[in-house]
Design a protein around this nucleic acid. Structure first.
Lengths: 210, 210
DNA sequence: ACCCGACTAGACATAAGTGTCTAGACAGGT
DNA sequence: ACCTGTCTAGACACTTATGTCTAGTCGGGT
C-alpha cells in the first residue's frame, strides 16, 4: 500500500484502488486524479479505463470497500462481551488506536467527502447510525439507561472523530496515557490499575501485529 | 454572506472573501474556484485579479482572517473568570454552540485544508496550541493539576472538533440536552440543576442575538 | 506457429481551470 | 468638458483534467 509497485509487476484493479485510497487519505477525494494514480503505478493513464468505467466508478468502489470494513469493525468490537464498562470502552478504543490510524483517517476522508456529495452523505449517515446503535447497546449492556447510553455513545463516538481529525503526532505510549483519562470521562468512574494494565498490554500487542 | 449580492451593488474585496468563505465552508478549499465566486457575485471572472494577485493570495487572506477571529474567540472565552468549573466549561460551549455553527465549520474546513498544505498546517498547529493552553489554564484555575488540566482540555477540545465534524442536524434544544452530559464528562461531577438552567438561558440568548 | 483475451500506450477531443492583456465604462475632482 | 483612478468585460494563451479510440504488446492455451 505505502510502497509504489515495481514497474515490472502486473497492475491489478486492486492496485488502482490502493493508490486511490492512499491519495484519498493524504489529500482528500478532490485530489484523487487518474493521472496521479497512474504515475504512482508507473502505468499509462488510459489503462485505468480498462479496470473502471470512470473516475466516479472508482470512487464508488472505494466507498463500498470502506463501508464493508470500517463500520463492521467498530460494530463487532462494540458487540464483544466485556466484564466491565471500563473494559468495554477500552476495547472500543483498541478498534481505533493503532500506529497508522489507517481506517480512521479513511473514515475522516469519507466524512469530508460526504460534505459535498449527498449520496455519500446518505451512506455515511447509515454507517454512523449503525455504529452509534452498537455503542449505545454496549453502554446499555452495562446498566446505563437507554437515554444515558445513547448520549455516552455519542460522546465517545464524536470524540473519536475529533481525535482523528486533530491529526496528532503521538506515540502509542502517549496515547495510552490519555486513554486512561478518557475512560474515566466516558464511564464516570476511574479505571482500576489492573484494568489499565490489561488495557495497555492488549493495545500494545494489537499495535505490534497490525 | 449567505445571500448573493444584487447585481447593481458595487463589488468589494470583502465580497470576494465572503463568497470564498461560503464555498470553503460547504465544499472545501479544493472547490474554491474563481469562476464559481464570480458567478456568485454576478461579475466577470477576470475582475477578481484586480483585488487579488492570485487564487493563492485569496486563500492566504482567508486563512489570516480565520486566525484573527476563531482562535481569539475561544481563548477569550476560556480566559473569562467563572465561579465553578461547570460554568467555565459551559461558557466554552457557548463559544461553539450556535444555530449556524459558522466559525466551527470554518475551523473544520481549515483543518481539512491543513492536511494537504504544510504552511496551513503550521498556522493551525499554532492556533491549536494557543487554544489548548487557554483551556488547560481554565481547568487549572479550578484546582485541576497541570497534567489533568491539560488532558481535560484536550478531551474537551477534540470532542468539539468531532462534534462539528459529525455535522449533526440538531436544534439548539437537542444540543443543550447533550451538553448537560458533556459537562459531567469533562468536569467529573454532575452539574447542579441551577447551573444547567443558567446555562440554558445563556446559550439560548446567545443563539438569538447571534 | 497461431490466436485470442487481457492489458497498455499514445494520439485525440473536450472541458474546466488559472492567469494576462487590452479596451473601455463610470464616477468624482478640477 | 475632460481627465484620472477605479473597476470590469472579453479575448487570448496555457495547463490540467476526463474520457475515447486505435493500434498494438504479451503470455497462455491449442
Amino acid at each position: 500500500m505505502d510502497t509504489p509497485l515495481p514497474g515490472n509487476t502486473k497492475v491489478t484493479r486492486q492496485d488502482w484502488l490502493d493508490a486511490a485510497t492512499q491519495i484519498l487519505l493524504t489529500d482528500g477525494v478532490e485530489r484523487v486524479k487518474i493521472l496521479t494514480l497512474a504515475n504512482l503505478l508507473n502505468v499509462s493513464r488510459s489503462s485505468f479505463y480498462w479496470y473502471f468505467e470512470s473516475r466516479e466508478a472508482l470512487l464508488t468502489a472505494l466507498l463500498d470497500h470502506w463501508i464493508g470494513t470500517n463500520t463492521a469493525a467498530l460494530v463487532a468490537h462494540a458487540a464483544t462481551q466485556q466484564p466491565t464498562i471500563t473494559a468495554a470502552v477500552a476495547n472500543v478504543f483498541i478498534c481505533f488506536i493503532d500506529e497508522r490510524q489507517f481506517n480512521n483517517r479513511l473514515d475522516f476522508a469519507v466524512r469530508d467527502w460526504a460534505r459535498r456529495d449527498p449520496s455519500v452523505r446518505e451512506v455515511l449517515a447509515q454507517s454512523d447510525e449503525q455504529r452509534l446503535t452498537a455503542l449505545a447497546a454496549m453502554f446499555g449492556a452495562h446498566g446505563y439507561t437507554p437515554e444515558d447510553a445513547r448520549i455516552r455513545a455519542r460522546v465517545l463516538y464524536y470524540m473519536q472523530i475529533g481525535y482523528i481529525d486533530a491529526d496528532l503526532q503521538e506515540t502509542t505510549q502517549e496515547r495510552l496515557e490519555q486513554v486512561a483519562h478518557y475512560i474515566f470521562a466516558f464511564t464516570g468512574q476511574h479505571a482500576t490499575q489492573a484494568e489499565l494494565d490489561t488495557f495497555r498490554t492488549t493495545v500494545l500487542s494489537f499495535s505490534e501485529t497490525g
